[in-house]
Design a protein around this nucleic acid. Structure first.
Lengths: 341, 341
DNA sequence: CTGAAAGCGCTAACAC
DNA sequence: GTGTTAGCGCTTTCAG
């Protein structure tokens, strides 16, 4: 196996020129320095021999491996965040680059050893990502190379970052219901995701809640209520039932994610409420679940693909300013919203 | 940025030895050739300077980059197949290696240009994967490096491959119901996944169907029927309704995947059948959906993580024989199976 | 026990 | 226009 690769010397010999000349022709294809005839001979030899440059060798000279690294807690195997990897891969491929990938599997790890492993391989840049939006504490070694934070923010924002525009998404969710005529009996289910291990809630929860509140306030209105709970189906079920029993039963629900909406659907259907006839539902994440639910769920997507691609573009652009890029979250309109009765 | 890295020469100078000696100490740490005192000085200098070897430079000499490549149609961002990436990453990391990743985004592409990109970067091995089990037609360039097929099979099986043991999973699904006492009114929903663009069906469909049939045959029994349809929720709903209307209504359903089971649940509940009281359900994939459904669905998992890890192990072991490794598919037993009334 | 020297495949001043 | 030469950072014979 692994038979000897064709080297530049082989090409040069075949074409009857020096390595220098061959290198010049093959790298700076625009260069008018070399005679057209020689150029042809070199290209011909290269083609004939099936020459491919050894990038490892080249990188020793030019200090660029055309490789960028991506480190995260756990993006690749994650339900939707995996799209970030895809976006990154495609953006990298588009420019002839390849992605080196590593995961810590543990959100409390800082990935220092993975960063070292990539630095040892001379990556041109590093993407430091997280599966859900949060603040991170990156190791200092990250600073020795161009980098961008993906779906996370460093303390003090001292580095370019790409995150979803959650607040705007919150406004959009609210506007979707407000525009349909739901004004005074809208509940937000899920809240800030206050749980035992994250008593302060999570970024998406805070921002979505904020955006929703702002949209209502902008029209001089307010939510009928917010139910804090963990963002899983059984909680959606439980909390929706509670809300249905209040004095002011909802005409619409904003669910913090599709899983909650799944639970809420169960509660609504069980209690004989029709969707969207009696109660409209809007949600976040736009997972494939949303398309399968009956009626299909209107949901606001996390722009993971775009975020991954944007991160690569920034790192390649050698972004120096510590700007935070917020990617818009598009709404997939389906059948779960109607005018109130 | 990118300040000069510390090189071996720096360490040697600091320790007052030659590059040769420093290299010997730092690489072949067992070597008793160098005096203990010198070794200490070199290690000390290395630590003090924060030396890290330049792997690109090293690879030029030793012909190993400690990097392995993974090419696929679209694994990373796929719902569950992403676990293959995770398994591969972890197996690679365990041996100090890093994973280079690329995707074609298109299952009809053979990824030749991605293979070249990785070959140019001198990967030690290549994993050629697919998001769902199928036959592939890899480019010949793949042969120039140790490789293994992940979740796919080359024509003629001329290369080591790792695939899920679907037939055994079929037997397991059937046995689960047979052992619970369901003998003559069991239907298999989904069949071989005969669709417009894949009129021949897919590997998983054929193998699951075969395993199920074998398990029944082994006990002198047979399925009450098989419903061929696409493996999506609406079809599960439609087909389950049809089956419920037959002369011999089911006491149990085997669904080819969890999405079909979701649809089947809707049909069963709508028709007033209780699960598992009236009808038991077993499914395949063990997606997170399975745990959320009510009652929670017993489902047989695709061992994606194990497959990814196994592929890396094989490629590192420089597997030469064209063996096909079948990974066992474990059953997640939940609440959807009971004895028939 | 240690160091000099060659060379992995490539690029880029600088000479001719 | 083209070739000579040095060198990127590392490993590894081979002498001493």
């Amino acid at each position: 196996m692994r038979q000897k690769r064709v080297t530049l010397s082989d090409v040069a010999r075949e074409a009857g020129v020096s390595r220098t000349t061959a290198s010049f022709v093959l790298s700076h294809q625009d260069s008018k320095r070399i005679s057209a005839d020689t150029q042809d001979r070199v290209w011909e030899a290269s083609r004939k021999l099936g020459y491919r440059p050894n990038l490892a060798a080249r990188s020793l000279r030019v200090n660029s491996t055309m490789t960028i690294g991506m480190i995260s807690d756990r993006i690749a195997a994650t339900q939707y965040a995996g799209e970030m990897v895809r976006g990154a891969i495609e953006a990298a491929t588009r420019t002839g680059r390849v992605l080196l990938i590593a995961e810590t599997e543990d959100e409390s790890a800082d990935g220092a050893e993975h960063i070292d492993a990539m630095l040892d391989r001379q990556v041109d840049g590093l993407i430091y990502g997280s599966m859900y939006t949060r603040e991170v504490e990156p190791p200092v070694s990250l600073r020795s190379v161009p980098h961008v934070f993906l779906n996370c923010l460093p303390p003090g924002n001292d580095g370019p970052a790409v995150i979803p525009d959650e607040a705007e998404a919150g406004r959009l969710a609210a506007a979707t219901l407000l525009d349909a005529g739901h004004t005074d009996r809208v509940y937000y289910i899920g809240g800030r995701h206050l749980t035992a291990d994250k008593p302060g809630g999570i970024f998406a929860g805070h921002e979505r809640a904020r955006g929703i509140a702002e949209a209502f306030a902008a029209r001089g209105l307010s939510l009928a209520g917010t139910a804090e709970c963990e963002w899983v189906p059984p909680e959606g079920y439980r909390v929706a039932r509670e809300v249905l029993r209040t004095d002011l039963p909802p005409t619409a629900l904003i669910c913090a994610n599709d899983r909650l909406a799944l639970g809420a659907y169960q509660a609504l259907q069980e209690s004989g409420f029709s969707i969207p006839g009696d109660v409209s539902v809007v949600s976040f994440d736009d997972s494939e679940l949303a398309a399968w639910m009956r009626p299909a769920l209107t949901s606001i997507a996390l722009p993971h693909y775009d975020m991954g691609a944007k991160a690569v573009e920034l790192v390649l652009g050698n972004q120096r300013e510590a700007a935070v890029h917020r990617c818009p979250m598009p709404c997939s309109t389906r059948e779960s919203v109607a005018r109130p009765r």
